[in-house]
Write a protein that binds this DNA or RNA. Structure first.
Lengths: 344, 344
DNA sequence: GACTTGTGTGCAACCGCTTGCATTAATGGC
DNA sequence: GCCATTAATGCAAGCGGTTGCACACAAGTC
């Protein structure tokens, strides 16, 4: 029923190998023949079957993209950028959602391995060891995780967390809470490490609350705990939690930012639209998606790059942070960039 | 390098056809042989190559999912549900983003056709004729579009628009604006048709503004026009536009809902979190994703269903709608369901 | 004991395509 | 005009599986 290379060969009076070459090695076929074949192919609506081709060449022109939660607003811009970049290179992309489950991650990578040229693992929850092993079975690029020898795209959240905490301590906050993210998250560990060091350097107290699910509910449910801890400022693992936390704080009668300042991480679209608008550490999600795809595809040529790309983060100051009880440092850190309104 | 059926055959001392049957027709092979083969397969880490299998069986165990814009918050819950449902049936899913471009839709369907068992076309912008034609080339299920003979999952936005407009006229609004959606959107036409009829029946004036891009900016940029038209209430094609519109109205000095009431459609996650919280018509996005996948897979058995599933919508009244200048109808329509706070 | 009836396995063709090699025709060098 | 190149095409094997058919063997049936 579907039109195959044989139909085209018959129609144009050449051998199937000539048709094949017309598409995959056009310079090997006589221009006249080529145009005749192309005309027939066009007329019959022939399209090479990629799966069949892949069987021989080993190149599928597919990419796997594995994320923890498609519905988490952090991921869609990354997925969109990756898909767009992949299609620019004539690749299609499988998307899988693991529901934050490391076991599902492993299963999906293995299930996809044969039908893709490589897999993008975004914010994986697996162990490093397992990632290393999988990376031997299929080309892998990891986003938001740093493992020696594994190609990666990482956003500099350590710096982001540092600047965020400095912003808070400069505002006079002496007791800061950190809402950590899900267990297994490298990003969460980085944030924690950096925030701890920064708070210590500034002589502020840091209370760590978590791990928490990286969702609105995850933030909402710890509002009481934040208040109980006496924190006047909070850095959340991501914007969704920050927004949930703010909801919880408001519900509990606390004002934001007058009583408690809140900083998120990611700068998802939502964060511009809540009230108060969220101060947050912007991560270059779309750029990460593009870069990861590019690495994966470059990969193919000179097998096994081990390069790691670092992307910068920046603090976006909006309305959810304000003065704390302590002395206020006159100058905010220099790397702060403020902007508001609708994204350009 | 990768382990094939031949490796397993060699290791377990049987012919490859026996290994094949062990996986695809286990009842045909002797239990002893079977367990021996399975043991070898397990030990070697063998996984059948789906692409190779598909070459013969014609079943790929893949599904294509084509959406207009992954970053539009309307789609992620649908994608997530579809992916989850697909994986439940051991299928993987290709996701493609068309950027609202009908030409890209066509191209992607064709490109994907050979590597999938079917395609889910969500909110397509193509012409009916083209969809019908594509549907002859690959099993298709359409979401948010009604075409005779094409299996579909549609949300009852006509009813949603009716109830929304009734809600507004009951509140005393006599001049309502409708922000229509992108050209080519069936949903937008349905909303328009229904809103027009409902406004007419209620003796209210309906000004149609658009078509507009279905984004925040799309709503933001027409705020002036809405005010100029003298409308005291607005129904927007989707929540994103409604939210953008509210931003624009506030920026222009109008109060929401005191001066202008705004209703959205979709009930995306965002809509609970903006200020004012958005009154909107909730569409069952996740259910649509699941249903569409189920239809597509059922499809495979008895070729070519032409069933169409209708999903109900409901009005969620929040804070963006209020009294208009006209007489206020005491009772709100009965099918109104109000809820707020965090989704359960 | 010859005859049917299953059961379990092997054989080989084939799915749609690529590719190394052989073949043929055209080209150029001298 | 002959030989060495080069260009264009055909041939056939094979990618990793599936599947109709043939075959061998064991277990009834009478």
């Amino acid at each position: 029923m579907a039109v195959t290379i044989r139909d085209v060969a018959r129609a144009s009076g050449v051998h199937i190998s000539t048709v094949s070459r017309t598409f995959s090695a056009p310079h090997l076929v006589n221009p006249n023949t080529r145009s005749r074949v192309l005309a027939c192919a066009e007329q019959l609506g022939y399209r090479p079957n990629r799966a069949a081709r892949a069987l021989i060449t080993g190149r599928t022109f597919n990419i796997g993209l594995i994320v923890a939660d498609i519905a988490n607003p952090f991921f869609p811009p990354l997925i969109k950028a990756a898909e767009s970049q992949a299609r620019k290179h004539d690749h299609h992309i499988f998307v899988a959602d693991t529901n934050e489950d490391a076991a599902v991650e492993e299963e999906v990578v293995r299930a996809l391995a044969k039908q893709v040229d490589g897999v993008l693992l975004v914010s994986p929850r697996m162990s490093n060891a397992l990632i290393e092993q999988l990376s031997r079975e299929v080309p892998l690029v990891v986003v938001n995780r740093q493992i020696a020898g594994i190609p990666a795209v990482v956003m500099d959240v350590a710096r982001g967390a540092r600047i965020a905490v400095e912003h808070l301590t400069n505002l006079g906050h002496r007791s800061v809470a950190l809402l950590s993210g899900p267990r297994g998250s490298w990003t969460s560990r980085e944030i924690r490490r950096s925030a701890t060091a920064t708070a210590k350097a500034a002589g502020a107290e840091l209370t760590i609350i978590g791990p928490n699910p990286p969702t609105e509910v995850g933030g909402l449910t710890v509002a009481e705990e934040v208040l109980r801890a006496g924190a006047t400022a909070v850095l959340a693992y991501n914007d969704l939690m920050a927004i949930g936390l703010i909801e919880g704080l408001l519900a509990a009668g606390a004002r934001v930012p007058q009583d408690v300042s809140v900083v998120g991480i990611d700068d998802i679209m939502l964060s511009r639209l809540t009230r108060p608008k969220l101060t947050t550490v912007a991560t270059p999600t779309a750029a990460a998606g593009r870069a990861a795809v590019d690495m994966l595809l470059a990969h193919g040529d000179d097998r096994r790059t081990t390069a790691q790309i670092h992307l910068q983060t920046e603090l976006v100051i909006r309305d959810s942070t304000g003065r704390g009880p302590g002395p206020h440092s006159p100058a905010d850190p220099g790397d702060v960039i403020a902007h508001g309104g609708v994204a350009s």
